[in-house]
Amino acid sequence: MTEWTNEAAIRRWDSANTRQYMAATAEDGDFAKRHLVNPVLLRLLGDVSGKRVLDAGCGNGYFSRMLADRGAQVVGVEPADSLFAFARDTETGRRQGIEYVQAELARLPELGAAFDAVACSMVLMAIPEWQPAMRACVEALRPGGQFVFAIVHPAFEGLWGTWRDHGEYRMRRYLAEYEITGQHAPDFHRPVSAYLNELASLGCRLHEVAEPGLDPAVAAESGVPGIESYVHLPNFLLVSAYANG
């Protein structure tokens, strides 16, 4: 596997995201986030009204804005210049009370009071130094606070493409760690056990693991060849846990 650093990965994400793409996904993300990731994240977090929530790796800020719309006091952290600038500029226009901080998750600055919840959506699988990032998320919580993260499911990373091409899912490697070439920037394959064992080592209590499937009606309406694979197999893995306390 290529020796990636956090800084190199951040530069790749920074250059890959155009202002046009960020504007197109500014409300609730892309198709997969709208239909598979966001609904489960919001269900796991429950009522966030009045809660202090960290959106860890907030990207263009869309999930921060969704949380703020539901009454949360939101801090969004994003290291990439282009994504951070879009999030900050959008907040300047909307004035939802979101505080955006430009920083790496693995090297979080002082963010004030501890958080009731930390949401880390579609980030950990894109970070070379993912373990310090997960630790920082957990350490930002108050005792008993909730940590929720979403990643591409390590067992089904190439789901849509292989199903479209072969009419079934195919995977040749699982246990090894390796780089995956992505549309915007690389992801890094690690088995599910790596994430869950790291969570346990941080003293977290597992609450729920979710593997959402796509509504068949949504798949049919989309008209995208191969998208029915999301009905039958989970392309995303979401985990909810609580910090000791």
Rank of each mutant, 00 (worst) to 15 (best):
E139I: 04
R205K: 12
A210T: 00
A119H: 01
G145Q: 10
P216R: 06
P79I: 14
V224C: 02
L238V: 10
A32E: 04
Q20N: 05
H166D: 03
A133L: 02
A80P: 08
A87D: 12
A200C: 05
P186Q: 05
D187T: 01
N235A: 15
C137E: 11
H207S: 08
L44P: 03
W160D: 06
Y62H: 15
A103M: 10
L159S: 00
V224M: 12
Y195N: 02
A136S: 15
I10C: 14
M66A: 08
E177M: 08
E211H: 04
E179H: 09
V75R: 01
D69K: 15
A72I: 13
A106Q: 10
G145E: 10
F31V: 06
T5G: 12
Q146S: 13
A200N: 03
L83W: 05
A56Q: 01
E139M: 13
A194M: 09
H35Q: 11
C137D: 13
N38T: 12
C120K: 03
D187Y: 01
A23Y: 04
Y242T: 15
G97S: 09
A119E: 04
E179L: 14
I151C: 07
N6W: 03
V152E: 08
R11T: 04
Y169D: 00
E91Y: 11
P225L: 05
E7Q: 15
R34D: 09
M122G: 01
P225F: 05
L41S: 06
V77I: 07
H166M: 04
A106I: 12
G203H: 01
W4H: 13
E91F: 13
C204L: 14
G223Q: 00
E208I: 02
A9C: 11
C58W: 10
Y230T: 01
G223K: 00
G203Y: 01
M122N: 07
L202I: 06
C58E: 12
V40F: 07
V148L: 12
L159T: 00
N17R: 11
E104W: 05
L159D: 00
S222V: 08
I227A: 08
L206S: 05
H184V: 00
F31I: 08
C58K: 05
L214A: 02
L105Y: 04
P39E: 06
V77A: 13
P225E: 10
